[in-house]
Amino acid sequence: MIEVEDLYFTYPSGVEALRGITLTIRDGEFVAIMGQNGAGKTTLVKHFNGLLKPTKGSVKIDGVDTTKASVAELARKVGFVFQNPDHQLFCETVEDEISFALKNFGFDEDAIKDRVDWALNLLDLTRYRNISPFMLSGGERKRVALASVLAWDPKILILDEPTIGQDYEQKERLRNFIVQLNAQGKTVIIVTHDIEFVAECKPRVILMAEGRVIADGDPHEILTNPNLVSKASLILPETTRILLGLRGMEQSGRLARVIDVYEAGRILTAMLRDQG
């Protein structure tokens, strides 16, 4: 469980990135932290594995204050996959990259081999085992970064902008993958401004603007609220924008909380048939 209590954070440059955040993320939740670039999303999640420590307020992971634990201890529980894989990858081969953290955590050799095999297979990277990560495409490097974190099986997984640079199919795969991990009981936190991706995944949404949480809850409520979405400098999901254009029509209330195109298709079909 992650408990954040009245968290403030000011960078050494004087920029106040977080201004009083209070929230709780329970085990097994799937959460999207959303907002425009500069809203404080990444600064917030960097507190979850102790990379940053509060200027004021507190962050507790399973009851332990992050100021009382090292990043290494926290990392065992909280895996962090960075936005840019090049900030994370540095080894000569994909295999070395994935085994690096396992060695640091003191796993024995057999366990390391098993886990590397498992992670390579899971992310469809087995054929690149002995290749340098820097020979791979951007999308593939992102998968290597994810594999290297999943390998040590952290119970909380943080993905910073996982959909950037990914094409449609890769996003679909990523979505299935996240849903699967979450179904297995992992807490998954994604940091993103990709509202279409969130509209398809439908996690709990935490909306941020200027270092504060401006909404927290059901995606159907938050992502269909034009005021909130524009306060966070985001754009409504495309499906919701289509349906907003129907406001005021008879029965359009049935569409007021819809963010997903398939759901929109079902309801509109019923409406058009009813009237026909």
Binding site: D167, Y168, V261, T269, R273
Partner: peptide, 19 residues
């Protein structure tokens, strides 16, 4: 596997249902 616009997607979904 390109993500066609939602507007076009919705049109296709309705057409599949005879609309």
């Amino acid at each position: 596997g390109v993500g066609i616009p939602k507007a076009t997607m919705l049109y296709k979904l309705l057409r599949e249902n005879g609309i």
